[in-house]
């Protein structure tokens, strides 16, 4: 009982530290939010005409996808942050303190969840400014932001595992980009799966990013959500169930 309370307290203390780090170096946050803006410009204004013959309709389709892309990209930061912590002496300090081993990990994920929600709101704000319209209501929109963030948290656990498992920072970054690329681009973020060749569609349709994106699209601009939502939640639960224990184990194993 007291163990759980202490874990929560220590995780919050570490989360605060990670958020203060972000505050002290707003550059990383800026980069994380500029990426989706850049993608919007490229896909909407450069390619939008070619993809769907105009901006207006495509914009409604694209912006929920851009939100999903934001969390996908932002999740790498968890792995990089943990990897950096282990490379510096800070870890010695943490490990010589009477705190639960997992507090450093959960604190990091907690701070990253805050970052993800904030990123979602910024991108949604940007979307509204350039003309995107939520066609459903406040509650479904909140649901969409929550689902995106939940998906982001699941990805953060995977990134945490990678960041702890692999010693070299460069490799962590490379691996992050390697596995996030198909996750982002072989998905329904930029175009519907129905427009793709069969072999690709098989992958795109089971890609969790597609399922999350389709659900959020439904929640923001209307349309069916039940099927994709079930798939998305299943994926999220499975990813956390597998990678959270793996990350904790890796954290314990690091000397």
């Amino acid at each position: 009982m007291t163990g759980q309370r202490a874990l929560a307290r220590h995780s919050l203390a570490v989360a605060r530290r990670n958020l203060v780090q972000v505050k002290n170096d707003p550059g990383q946050l800026l980069a994380a939010t500029l990426t989706p803006v850049l993608f919007t410009v490229v896909f909407l204004y450069v390619l939008g005409g070619a993809i769907s013959g105009g901006q207006a309709g495509y914009q409604q389709y694209l912006m929920p996808g851009i939100m999903a892309q934001t969390v996908t990209v932002a999740s790498i930061a968890t792995g990089i942050g943990l990897n950096l912590d282990f490379g510096s002496g800070v870890m010695d300090r943490f490990r010589s303190l009477p705190i639960a081993r997992s507090a450093v990990l959960t604190g990091r994920i907690l701070a990253d969840a805050c970052r993800l929600v904030l990123g979602q709101l910024v991108v949604l704000g940007f979307a509204l400014v350039i003309g995107f319209r939520v066609q459903t209501g406040v509650l479904p929109a909140v649901g969409a932001v929550l689902l995106m963030s939940l998906y982001g948290i699941a990805l953060c656990w995977i990134a945490a595992y990678v960041g702890l498992r692999i010693r070299s920072m460069q490799t962590v970054q490379t691996i992050g980009f390697l596995w996030l690329t198909p996750l982002q681009f072989a998905s329904s973020i930029f175009a519907p799966a129905s427009t793709m060749p069969d072999w690709l569609r098989v992958f795109v349709e089971v890609n969790p990013t597609s399922l999350v994106t389709d659900t959020c699209r439904g929640l923001l601009i209307g349309g069916p959500v039940a099927g994709s939502a079930a798939g998305a939640l299943l994926w999220i639960a499975a990813m956390i169930a597998v990678f959270a224990p793996l990350a904790v184990r890796e954290y314990r194993r690091r000397p």
Binding site: R17, Q21, S88, G89, V90
Partner: peptide
Amino acid sequence: GLTGQYASVDENIS
């Protein structure tokens, strides 16, 4: 309490 041979302060917070 430990003061290690190599600084174990967090460089990114005050």
